[in-house]
Design a protein around this nucleic acid. Structure first.
Lengths: 146, 146
DNA sequence: GATAATAGTTGATGATGGAAACTATATTTG
DNA sequence: CAAATATAGTTTCCATCATCAACTATTATC
């Protein structure tokens, strides 16, 4: 086992903890939980996304997604709409409030990251982005660990 | 706002989702939840760690940690021991089973990562590790986002 | 048209984390 | 040294939230 791999794994895990539920504090995110925010991001990113698509993207059951969308709809971040092509399908769209919230939270986190990476040189920053991108794409292609 | 920062933020968040609760599946991890595993890792890494130290490391309350340790102790992954120096303090130690579990799970994830990073060159791997390390250290120094 | 398949919702249940009250021990103070 | 205060950890109550299985509504198949 390449020791670099073990170290990378451990670093990702610890990093993930910071950006997971424990690091994601209600205060900086309006009234959104992490999963609500993740779902909202998908809704904003993909036009007319369905319940099951959100579930596939976030690795949660359709039942779980349905309730997340309930909450988001109740708080006026998204709207449900029946698909005109298939009456069984529920298309989810962001409201103006939803779009704004995603932007605001994203900005807040970026600002935090900017402070964190303050002393780091520009070209190294590009390198970080490239590395993260490569890593994420590879993992996404591979799918969730089973 | 440097667009690299926004992209890095977004990548970390998505990556974190994979390695957070949603990607951490009971099947590959004995009977441990993510928080249980994270706590167990701390217990294995730091000799005679206390409840509050675990809480500080994982950003959860002492009440929460107490219950996580309850579960870990019940499943025989850790032991509680009263500190000889201060009777109020509870030192937590891993059992043999606990040590083995951490190793096994860590290996399982590393194996997954190895498959993911299969096609990547050795020197780029070192680069990835360095970047992740830099990022993690910077974030840890900064503390949790508030 | 009847049957099967599919998308989404709902009710019951279980896991789990936080706040506040509580216990036990240690430290400070008069 | 006894009382008051502080601290570490536990427990109780409660809120959140995800899953499973059953259900509804719609579409596809035969």
């Amino acid at each position: 086992m390449d020791s670099n791999i073990s170290e990378i794994y451990s670093l990702i895990q610890d990093l993930s903890w910071y950006f997971g539920n424990q690091g994601f504090d209600g205060e900086c995110c309006e009234d959104l939980s992490l999963v609500e925010y993740m779902a909202l991001k998908k809704v904003c990113a993909i036009k007319n996304i369905t319940i099951q698509e959100i579930g596939a993207a976030l690795n949660i059951t359709k039942s779980g997604v349905s309730k997340v969308i309930d909450r988001l709809e109740e708080k006026d971040y998204v709207l449900r709409e029946q698909s005109s092509e298939d009456g069984r399908v529920c298309c989810v769209k962001p409201t103006e409030k939803g779009l704004n919230a995603v932007k605001k939270i994203s900005d807040r986190y970026s600002e935090y990251l900017m402070e964190v990476l303050d002393s780091i040189e520009k070209d190294l920053l590009v390198n970080i982005r490239d590395v993260m991108e490569l890593l994420y794409k590879a993992i996404r292609e591979k799918g969730y660990i089973k």
